[in-house]
Amino acid sequence: MTDQAYNFAYLDEQTKRMIRRAILKGLAIPGYQVPFASREMPMPYGWGTGGVQVSAAVLTPADTFKVIDQGADDTTNAVSIRTFFERVAAVKTTTVTADATVIQTRHRIPEEPLTEGQILVYQVPIPEPLRFLEPRESETRKMHSLEEYGLMHVKLYEDISRHGHIATSYAYPVNVEGRYVMDPSPIPKFDNPKLNDMAAIQLFGAGREQRIYALPPYTQVVSLDFDDHPFEASKANHCCGLCGSADSYLDEVIVDDAGGRMFVCSDTDYCEARQAAGYKGKDAA
């Protein structure tokens, strides 16, 4: 049911045009944070207002839209955004990764490899990777423009000195095409290798911080590390309890108050597709 009171995809055409210009600039300079005039959206900051505005700017009536929140299609954030666009844009929606043309995501990259022609839109809370090391925005911009990224390694150094290994497990900083250091949004570092050389367009929108950045298809993305402490994509050392997958990213679910727990794929679509194809994990009913 489309709400005719709104323009297609909620935002007015001039706003979408402004956002598209920011996206194009971002694609032209991979990893560079482009400022844009973020609009007030009918949902609170922190619920994906940046991602929603980017999605609104790239959606066309012919698109098929998928929303995931921590990999799942059925959690609050995913359901509310999907319903929002069903109502204001009347686009087709799906939960099947391969069928979607635009995928808005919070904190995960789908397990199934994305293809050319797909767009992955990330919701970004804090776009500035140097934020907690250097609080002055004027200074971090200067550091980006002069490529002074030694400070980023100070953070990794602190991790190793305190924990014995690089303990940063999400929002793990990456270097894009040997130039800009970028925060890949709070995706687990397990997903970092998928950023590299991806066939789909990746767009990052930060609503409260008013920044858009982007990775065009087949962009080189390298996770930062030390020579003697190389980057490692880590996950829980288990198999999915429902579909038995050994190489997908897992959520730990507490099932009772006696220490019982199970591990399940965080990507619900991937897990369900495997179960439908006959794969069974040890906890499957």
Partner: peptide, 9 residues
């Protein structure tokens, strides 16, 4: 690290 050292040890 600012001048390019990348070996933790």
């Amino acid at each position: 690290m600012a001048v390019g050292a990348r070996h933790y040890g």
